[in-house]
Structure formats: structure tokens, C-alpha cells
Design a protein around this nucleic acid. Structure first.
Lengths: 127, 127
DNA sequence: TGTTGACTTCGAGCATACTCCAACTTGTAC
DNA sequence: GTACAAGTTGGAGTATGCTCGAAGTCAACA
């Protein structure tokens, strides 16, 4: 897979993929005639990175997981612990957003009530 | 309420409150002897801003709602429409995060399975 | 009246995550 | 073999949202 194919597949730009390689999120990507060739393993790893990214994990923390991964199987427990911790954050985040959703609903209700008051005034129901 | 009280109450820094005033999220805050005095109405508005902020609305969009608010009641429909649209985004975001949570759970399961395999090898159950 | 400490303004600086540029190389198409 | 698209590198620049520093002001208390 070329860089532009990979980029399209992952929904990011080729620039971003080079950037991720530069900061070490993904390492020793093969080259053919100097050009990057992404294997299916590379893609699986990048997809996992994207998964962490969309759940608002900062690149610095993703980098830490990447570093551990490149150190080998001995770091598995630590990586699992990081994921478990991230899962808890994610669950808390979902609960928080649900709370904000309800608050937003109430605010919208306020607007609806104000609109109705205005309509009543305009149709002159009180005079 | 002084700026530091307001900041503490809202969970941001005084610097941030001045910044929000500078970019126009909140306007004509009273001064007493040159110092900001936040009224309960100011606080209600700032709390609403925070509510939007924690749901990942960019300051630029919040600014737009603030601009509309300062234009008066005539912009109520437009503001309500923005909130409705934001609510849809928020709902979609929650669904998305729930999906990512499940994906994360599966990844964690993978790690657990690998750990169990390793334990079996170490205790020599196969020889 | 002097000191303390929280406040003021303005502008510069910072962290994150890209995003772009310049100059050069490579593979394919004719 | 030459044109052209797509790729390469390193480094600089950008957008967002703060965050800090400098230099000065103000109120309250000893």
C-alpha cells in the first residue's frame, strides 16, 4: 500500500502519516525505491492508533504505548494496564457527555418556552 | 464576585477569563476601581459557555452564539438551531465513543488471552 | 504612609497536532 | 529519453486555546 492509499484508508493526510513516523508512532516502514510501503500489519497498527486518537488519547500517550510495543512482549502487562486505564477514562467521558446532553436539552427547552411566550404575545391572546 | 472567585468557581484560570473577554465570549463586565466584578448573570452565562466548551464546541462557534446573544432576542431562533445541531453532534459523539469503548474491550480481551497463553507455557502444561 | 497582594493591560510565548514548502528522486506513459 | 505525477527529506509555519511576563494600579491594613 502506498502512502496515499494508506492515508485515504485511514482518513488522514499523507503528511500526517509521515509525521506519525517522524515522532515514532510507527517505525521501520518498508521502502521500495525510497517510497513507503505499508503492510497489512502496519495498517492494523495504524488503525489501532486511530482508534486511540479518536477517543482523545494525546499523541504523547499513544507514543508511550508504541514505544512499549516496540520493546516487545515483555511490556504487554503495562500496555494492557494503559488500555484498562484508558477504558475507564472513556467510560467516564461518556457519562459526562450524557450529562451535558441532558443539560443542553434543558437549555433547548428554555428556548422553546421563550418562543411560545413570544408567539402568544404576537397573536395577542392576553388582551 | 472577583475574577479569582469566578475563576475558581468555573474551574479555569483568571487568565482564561480575561482571554474570553478579550475574544468577546463575554462582554461589558462591570468594573469597580478598575477591577472586574462578575454578576450572577455573568456567571450563568459563563457556566453555559463552559458547558459548550466541555462538549468540544470550538471557541469560534461559542463566539458565534455569544455574538448572536449580544444582538438580542431576535436571534433566539438561530441560537436554538445551533444548540439543536450541537445536540445532534453530541449524540453522535456519544454513540461513536461507545463503539470505540467496545473495540477497546476487544483489544483488552486479546491481551488477556495472550497473557493466559504465556502463563500456560510458563507453568509447562504442555510437556 | 508604606507595604502587601491581588488586580490591571498588552503583547509575547507555548503545547499540540498538524500542514506546508522547497528541492530533489522515482516510476510510469508515451 | 523526456515529461509528469507522486513520492522523498528537513525544517518552517499555522491554528487553537491558553499561559505567562512586565510594568503599573489599587485597596486595605499596620
Amino acid at each position: 500500500m502506498t502512502i496515499s492509499e494508506a492515508a485515504q484508508h485511514l482518513g488522514v493526510s499523507a503528511h500526517t502519516l509521515r509525521y506519525y513516523e517522524k515522532i515514532g508512532l510507527i517505525r521501520h516502514v518498508e521502502r521500495a525505491g525510497g517510497r513507503r510501503v505499508y503492510t497489512s500489519q502496519d495498517m492494523a497498527w495504524l488503525e489501532f492508533i486511530m482508534r486511540l486518537k479518536v477517543t482523545a488519547m494525546p499523541l504523547a500517550r499513544i507514543k508511550k504505548i508504541a514505544d512499549l510495543r516496540y520493546q516487545g512482549d515483555a511490556t504487554m502487562d503495562e500496555r494492557k494496564a494503559m488500555l484498562l486505564s484508558h477504558r475507564e477514562n472513556l467510560k467516564a467521558e461518556i457519562v459526562k457527555l450524557q450529562g451535558h446532553l441532558h443539560a443542553l436539552d434543558r437549555k433547548i427547552d428554555d428556548y422553546t418556552a421563550l418562543q411560545q411566550q413570544r408567539e402568544q404575545r404576537e397573536t395577542g391572546e392576553n388582551t
